[in-house]
Design a binder for these strands. Structure first.
Length: 248
DNA sequence: GCGACAG
DNA sequence: ATCTTGTCGC
């Protein structure tokens, strides 16, 4: 099955998906910060059966204890192939289904993937935030687009990820000294380990996204919300401990 | 035209 | 993302 055919099954052609992203991107709010944070959610998607099945996981952590309050795993047939730049169309349907099963709503959502650090400023984190109407931020392990200089070696420090493209909405765009658009940050979440890419998803700015990511860092590279969602989404989450003490 | 390319 | 064991390092 070609990418073209798969997208048709989702009622969208690649071209239409791009048009939709261009239309939605201007709605993304890249400023502000969530208020009274009591619960932070982590989201990630995994696959089974060689990709036939999509597995979405959402974990709810209490702030500031970072204690697991609730978790949901949702499975459904995979309908879309992975196409760089169109990841959200492949993962969001399952993510939304998982969110629909949550007992409560989080105040902030951390997504495994890019926020506005995307060719059209609408990575999966931004897209999901727009859909859920919640503050979101993206924590990715690899760069999709943009450039950056050397990353500081000290945990918690970062260097900007920039892109020269024109701004969809010049009004709320952050730029560096050279006037290039700042779309995210290469954050050293752990010393001697490759940095993670943090970017605003929706309803918060880069500084706030970095603050919360740093605040959720434990002993590993990935912040707790994303790390736990990762374990639940991928089948290696065998050692995942539920709030009630049971295993998954 | 030739790479690059989240998960 | 996923297929996969042991192994090097803090």
């Amino acid at each position: 099955m070609t990418n073209q055919q798969a997208l048709h099954e989702w009622t969208l052609t690649p071209e239409e998906a791009v048009v939709l992203q261009r239309r939605l991107a201007p709605r993304v709010v890249r400023q502000g910060k969530p208020d009274t944070v009591t619960c932070i959610a982590g989201v990630d998607i995994g696959f089974e059966d060689g990709g036939e099945t999509t597995r979405a996981a959402v974990v709810m952590l209490e702030w500031p204890s970072l204690t697991l309050q609730e978790s949901v795993v949702h499975r459904e047939p995979t309908r879309m192939p992975y196409i760089p730049g169109l990841l959200s169309f492949r993962e969001i349907p399952a993510a939304l289904a998982a969110f629909a099963r949550l007992a409560s709503r989080p105040d902030l959502v951390m997504v495994d993937g890019q926020g506005i650090a995307h060719p059209r400023r609408l990575g999966v984190a931004s897209h999901l935030g727009l859909w859920l109407d919640l503050p979101t931020l993206g924590v990715a392990k690899k760069v999709l687009c943009g450039r950056h200089g050397d990353v500081p070696a000290t945990r918690g420090e970062w260097t900007p990820l920039t892109d020269r493209r024109r701004a969809e909405d010049p009004a709320d765009v952050e730029t560096d000294a050279e006037g290039r658009v700042v779309i995210g940050a290469m954050l050293r979440s752990r010393e001697n380990v490759k940095p993670v890419i943090v970017s605003p998803g929706h309803r918060l700015d880069l500084a706030t996204a970095l603050e919360w990511t740093n605040a959720c860092l434990g002993k590993t590279k990935l912040p707790e919300p994303t790390r736990l969602a990762d374990r639940l989404a991928s089948r290696r989450g065998r050692r995942f401990v539920e709030p009630n003490g049971s295993l998954l």
